[in-house]
Amino acid sequence: MKKHDHPLLAMSPEQRLNETLKLMVQNEEVWILNDEHGCVMLNTEDEEDGVPVWPTSELAELWATDEWADCKPLRISLSDWMKKWQSGLAGDDLLVMVCPVPGEEGEVLSPEEFSAQLSK
């Protein structure tokens, strides 16, 4: 499969959110991009900081270009996400940007909302 042929790329942000959540639960994993400084953060349109997450390493790699070219996808188990990441992000006032794709930031949720969706 070519990177740009992923079916999620053709979906609306809302459809992508639903499919992403399904895949994350199915595979029991969340993917982020990481470099020597830690995980990649993006700004939302409202200038809030968010951590982008993806359901697969291939989709995460689509962001690893230009200023993020040194970044590598990092797998986080769903249980680690629920135990450590959700409270850590919430404590730092960070949002979760679900499956952004080139040109679109994706749906933006609070860490609590995101984890609640994953727990459905």
Rank of each mutant, 00 (worst) to 15 (best):
E36N: 12
G38F: 09
G38Y: 13
V40G: 08
M41W: 14
M41T: 14
L42R: 02
T44F: 04
D46F: 06
E47H: 04
E47C: 02
V51T: 07
V51L: 11
V53K: 01
V53P: 02
V53N: 03
W54H: 03
S57D: 10
E58C: 02
L59T: 12
L59I: 15
L59K: 13
A60D: 07
L62W: 05
W63N: 12
A64M: 10
T65A: 09
D66V: 02
D66F: 04
E67G: 12
W68K: 11
D70K: 12
K72P: 03
P73D: 10
L74V: 14
R75N: 09
I76V: 14
S77N: 13
S77P: 15
S77E: 15
D80W: 14
D80Q: 15
W81R: 04
K84L: 07
K84N: 06
W85G: 04
G88T: 04
L89W: 09
L89E: 03
L89R: 02
L89Q: 03
L89H: 01
A90I: 01
D92R: 11
D93F: 04
L95Q: 02
L95T: 00
V96A: 00
V96P: 01
V96D: 01
V98I: 09
C99T: 15
V101T: 13
G103Q: 14
G103F: 00
